[in-house]
Simulated scan of single mutants.
Amino acid sequence: MSDSNLLIHIGYPKTASTWLQQGIFKEADMGFSSPWRSDWADPIVIDKFITVDSFSFCPQKTYSAFEKGLQDAKEKGLYSVLSQEMLSCNFLDQSGYWGKEVADRLHSVFPQAKVLIIIREQKSMILSAYGQNIRKGGRQSIEQFISTENFKSGRYPLFRLYVLKYDLLIKYYQELFGENQVLVLPFELLKKDPISYIEHIFNFVGIQNRIIDRERFPVLTNANYKSFTLKIHKIINNFFIFPYRGYINSSDSFLWKCLWKSFSLLDKYIPQKLQDQEKLYLDKTVSTYIKNMYIESNQKTSQLIKMDLSKFGYDC
């Protein structure tokens, strides 16, 4: 299996994966090739590594689905990319905590590949995921979204806080692929210095002599509504039954378009004082629940990736 010319971007979700996929990985003049890509990331990766039946998974057969794309990219002098943020986990799926199993499958198919992992400060990640859950039709309060206090044994909240102990997944990938084959970057570096962020990725895969024009990349925006808008959205979700597990799953649906436009308008005209009050409540609630949960993990992560995460606002 010739996969030494392959970069696998595994997420995490809510770390500007779309920005990478649309601004960097799809551009041949950036040195990358993603021949398996559709309009949304690489859905073939979900089929082959996440939803595949465990008894049917075969590394050789799986590799054959990617072989031609890898060869074509290599012949063109490009670096192949598999980019799918759900390879790490899926916060909005009760069964979406498959990080270790997917890592094993990826390594069995592409043992020489390089791996890119993007992390995000935990409180910010939780709030971003909660906002996405509401936008997809969720009805939970922030307490219900993250707390195990009111759940019976064997039942779990949608968002499991332990998944943000990044050192566990990072260490496992380093053990599988090799420490030098895994690059971990904080999402906050992209917000602070996008040029440095991109250069880290280029240096990691050995792409040289590329001019990085900041003007050509997509604008990094906040996809969520503001806090009080989300509160109204959550209340209204109780009066609708959305397709597919209670989520709005099609941007072409009339209902989806109407809600999108309505809440976008609300987001602009709701007084900022109300938005700030609700954000303060959400921030305090999340801080109360997580307490010092991630300090030790962030310290270990800083050591693993040789980067001081406290400089990016992580609890260390």
Results as ranks from 00 to 15, higher is better:
T285A: 12
L190V: 11
E27N: 13
I50A: 01
T229G: 09
H9L: 05
L161Y: 11
V115Q: 06
L87M: 06
Y225D: 08
F25G: 00
F159T: 02
A65S: 10
L78V: 05
S34M: 11
N133C: 13
F66G: 01
W98N: 02
N90C: 07
Q132W: 03
F177L: 05
V115M: 12
K226N: 12
Q299I: 08
K231L: 14
E278V: 09
N292K: 08
N150M: 10
N292C: 05
L116F: 04
I295C: 08
D29R: 15
E149K: 15
I44F: 02
E27Y: 10
Y244W: 08
F66T: 03
F159R: 00
S128G: 11
D53W: 02
P271I: 09
F32P: 00
L116K: 01
Y289W: 10
F263A: 07
Y130H: 10
D193K: 14
L183G: 02
S34K: 06
G154F: 00
S262K: 14
S141W: 12
Y225C: 08
K76A: 15
L280C: 10
W256Q: 13
Y314W: 12
K234G: 09
D252Q: 14
G69I: 01
E85G: 00
I118P: 03
A65I: 03
D267M: 12
L82H: 01
V102H: 00
P43R: 01
S253F: 11
D283K: 09
P111V: 06
G31I: 05
L183H: 09
T229A: 12
K165F: 05
D276N: 12
Y281R: 15
K100P: 00
K76I: 08
S297E: 06
I44E: 07
S128M: 08
K48V: 01
W40P: 01
L266R: 14
Y172S: 03
D315L: 10
L274P: 03
V109N: 04
I44V: 11
G131T: 05
K114T: 05
K268W: 13
L176R: 11
S310N: 09
